[in-house]
């Protein structure tokens, strides 16, 4: 995975790199950890079981990480789902989850 790949993916690489104080290796290493983050699975499971509190916590944590790394395509649906879950809104999250899954897969492919 290279910076160019992330740019193509749609990440705001400038912001992400700035938070790493320009340290490209650190940035790439941290993005790499996102690919294997348990949080996505926890979010999905919690939603499937209807545990909205846990789902919110998982989404919130993901949101922080993704926004720090400026992975916009993935951060956007996570952001939306976090705000919905903050109000513990009971609804069908399948669409949002699918979008997250799709963007995550795209990221993992890099």
């Amino acid at each position: 995975m290279k910076l160019e790949d992330l740019i193509a993916y749609g990440a705001d690489v400038d912001s992400g790199l700035a938070r790493c104080m320009g340290n490209e290796a650190l940035y790439l290493r941290l993005v790499e950890t996102v690919k294997g983050d348990d949080g996505f699975a926890q979010l999905e499971e919690a939603l499937r079981d209807g545990r909205l509190d846990d789902a919110f916590e998982a989404a919130h944590a993901l949101k922080g990480v993704l926004s720090n790394l400026a992975l916009a395509p993935l951060a956007k649906p996570v952001d939306v789902i976090t705000e919905l879950l903050r109000g513990r809104k009971v609804m069908d999250y399948a669409g949002l989850l699918a979008e997250i899954e799709r963007e995550l897969t795209r990221l993992r492919a890099l």
Partner: peptide, 13 residues
């Protein structure tokens, strides 16, 4: 902080 990424970012800074 419970998030590895966040910790690492702060460590770096």
């Amino acid at each position: 902080d419970d998030e590895y990424v966040d910790r690492e970012l702060l460590r770096n800074v």
